[in-house]
Design a protein around this nucleic acid. Structure first.
Lengths: 214, 214
DNA sequence: ATAAAACCTGAATCAGTTGTCATATTTTAT
DNA sequence: ATAAAATATGACAACTGATTCAGGTTTTAT
């Protein structure tokens, strides 16, 4: 048999350049629409209108509104991780990478506010995908911290706990300063004071005297 | 005129013991129902069924499904703050209070998982109330850190940034360890290792050598 | 005891949604 | 050039779920 085994395309995959274009348009429109209206307020109608196609076309490529959200979440996650990874290369050590990473994250959020909304709302539509998103992130983060600890760049400690704590810090700082506080999102060094505060925490802790205790 | 000026009751306020009871039943039922089904999946029907009253009764006390969510958010916020405040009195200094507070928060979340879901979902129903919740929290937190800095209990630094960072840490640690990781939620010291990790961060930072830099 | 106020009921209304389908158009392969 | 496959259309079926309302029941005040 001529076994030119094609990678089994998912059901709604386009088989034409035009189809691929349309699918992509819908995806972008969904990101915008979910981002501004929110998942529940956004109807499929709103998405297709924004994409400039008919309602029915949506169902040529996606089986449901929920499915497109899932795809969006994975998409945005990949993009963010790629962006952060790119911004962090060239850091001398882990602590420097943390600073760069935080800065890059805040900037990315300010530039792509939809990411946040889509992701956070996904939590209540399909909790599994939300968990997976953060567990994946945390796994990578933990590994990096473990490597840094081996290299003697950071103190020994439970790096899984730390990874979740650091993700939480970034998340809330982003929420407050990149999304809610509009002023000063412009300008390249807009987030420097925040990064500086966190850097100080990493280098010196919060206690007045950096000594150990019980 | 006999000016016995009553505090102007909100529209749907009950005027009878029975009414107050019913209203309370609905509120509790709403917390449970939103908590387990989520805001959107939970119908008013589900709430009233859980409360053991007819649909129509709901609208005797609340003007909309959205309104009861708002009330719930404020309610839960008050309860949580009261709980944390109570658990933290008797701490020697701010750092000890942070540890106690984190432990108490994690335990509270494990015991009242609805809090989290209701609050996070409120974000997409009425963003203003969500912001207000955290801004209120942050304000109090910042004040406490400022006071601690004056007393020399913690390093000088931007305490607003720190407040948001600390809230984020708690939030994510709670998400992961109090809500998602089921194992070991029992037992009094279940969260001790986590608190220990964060305590170490506060006392010694993340860097290997607690020296200052640039 | 009785009228008034408060409270409760649940069927009906009403606005909006997702997802389907028969049909029309465009692209691809021969 | 032409048939087959892929893509696009938009009206519509089927359903969901919030809110209303006219009328019954319980509580309160006199």
């Amino acid at each position: 048999m001529s076994t030119t085994t094609q990678a089994p395309q998912p059901p709604g995959a386009p088989k034409t350049a035009r189809g691929a274009r349309t699918r992509a348009k819908i995806l972008v429109a969904a990101e915008d629409t979910f981002g501004s209206l929110g998942y529940h307020r956004a109807g499929v109608t709103d998405i297709t209108r924004a994409a400039g196609v008919a309602q029915g076309t949506f169902y040529t490529y996606f089986t449901s509104k929920e499915e497109i959200l899932r795809e969006l979440v994975m998409d945005l996650g990949h993009k963010l991780r790629a962006h952060l990874a790119a911004q962090v290369i060239g850091s001398g050590d882990r602590l420097e990478a943390e600073e760069q990473g935080l800065r890059a994250f805040l900037q990315y959020l300010a530039d792509h506010p939809s990411l946040y909304r889509v992701l956070q709302e996904a939590q209540f539509v399909d909790e599994a995908i939300y968990q997976e998103y953060y567990e994946t992130f945390a796994r990578g983060y933990t590994d990096m911290l473990n490597a840094a600890a081996r290299k003697g760049e950071i103190r020994a400690g439970n790096n899984q706990h730390r990874a979740w704590a650091l993700m939480g810090m970034s998340h809330f700082l982003g929420l407050k300063y990149a999304l809610w506080d509009q002023r000063a999102k412009q300008g390249d060094g807009a987030f420097d004071p925040i990064v500086e505060t966190i850097s100080d925490l990493f280098h010196n802790g919060l206690a007045l005297n950096g000594r150990d205790r019980g």
